[in-house]
């Protein structure tokens, strides 16, 4: 499926009559990129440059990435670096956990007609509709009872719940893993789990990468769960950390004699780089994978 995207790249020759479409597309690209451009430009400015009335979409006279960098990584004892590492931990532990569970469950739902399967699957689909904010409240209380709040687990465990990932894996496994191959392996005497590892897993790779990427994005971008669960700022992921700086910058008396907006903007820029790089380098996989669940 994924390779289909790139293979058919040379299908249609370019035609001049698409020129208006190109212009339209160029406009759209500008619209979607303006905020990124703003981020890049403004992370070079001091607060005087930010608010002093210069052009918001162009550099001011003194481009000072260096000073902003230094401040960003030294402010509050260099806490920003720690936030980045926390985000990486939550994203990887949360994303990998969610993906492993989704792969196993999706395969189970797709390839086994076990008792209660339909009911379980229907409940699973219903779960997609549950507002995650509604879960944060009771989950917090339950975690507090077992002393799990304000630990890394309070952020990681809830992100393992990814019903949509299970649904995607189910659809993919159902279509891309032929029963005949599995049966053949079983006839050869392979156990169920071994069959899964040897036969199904390689076939499911594009879907796995897609679900992994989506889960990692969801964890990396998560805001309200860690905000509610963590009170120790040294456990914050970078989203909540930047949120903390924003609220510090907007609360009287909290920022003291230091301007935070410059490092908030540079910190935002740096925090989005890893995901953008991941998407760009892995595009071969996820672009096809995202159509999962919609083809049938």
């Amino acid at each position: 499926m994924s390779s289909g995207v790139t293979q058919r790249g040379s299908r249609t020759p370019r035609r001049p009559r698409y020129l208006p479409l190109h212009v339209l597309l160029a406009f759209l690209v500008v619209y979607f990129l303006v905020p990124f451009w703003w981020l890049i430009v403004n992370s070079s400015k001091s607060s005087a440059g930010l608010f002093g009335g210069g052009n918001a979409l162009w550099f001011s006279d003194d481009i000072d990435y260096g000073e902003n960098f230094r401040q960003l990584f030294t402010y509050g004892g260099g806490i920003y670096r720690r936030w980045l590492l926390n985000s990486a931990l939550y994203a990887v532990a949360g994303g990998v956990g969610a993906t492993v569970l989704a792969v196993l469950a999706g395969y189970g739902f797709a390839k086994y007609r076990f008792a209660g399967r339909r009911l379980a699957f229907a409940i699973l689909l219903g779960a997609v509709m549950v507002p995650t904010t509604a879960l944060v409240i009771p989950t917090f209380i339950l975690f507090a009872k077992i002393d799990l709040t304000n630990t890394v687990w309070a952020v990681i465990l809830p992100t393992w719940l990814n019903p949509f990932g299970v649904y995607l894996m189910h659809v993919y496994a159902r279509d891309a893993v032929p029963d005949e191959l599995l049966d053949a392996a079983r006839v050869d005497g392979a156990g169920e789990f071994r069959t899964f590892l040897r036969i199904a897993l390689p076939l499911m790779r594009p879907a796995i990468i897609t679900v992994l990427l989506l889960s990692i994005v969801a964890s990396w971008n998560n805001y309200f769960l860690p905000l509610a669960m963590l009170s120790d700022n040294r456990l914050f992921p970078v989203t909540v950390g930047i949120g903390l700086w924003q609220s510090t910058a907007s609360t009287y008396g909290a920022a003291g004699g230091q301007s935070l907006w410059s490092i908030i903007i540079l910190g935002s820029l740096i925090s989005v780089v890893p995901l953008i790089v991941a998407f760009l380098t892995l595009q071969r996989y996820w672009q096809g994978g995202l159509s999962l669940g919609s083809l049938k």
């Binding site: 507090a144 709040t149 509610a228 009170s231 700022n233 949120g243 609220s247 609360t251 909290a254």
Partner: peptide, 22 residues
């Protein structure tokens, strides 16, 4: 620890009070 400035901190403290710990 700095648990947030102003309202952010009250929100956290409120949650901890409701939960009975934290």
């Amino acid at each position: 620890t700095n648990a947030g400035a102003g309202p952010d901190e009250y929100e956290k403290f409120q949650t901890a009070v409701s939960a009975g710990s934290g």
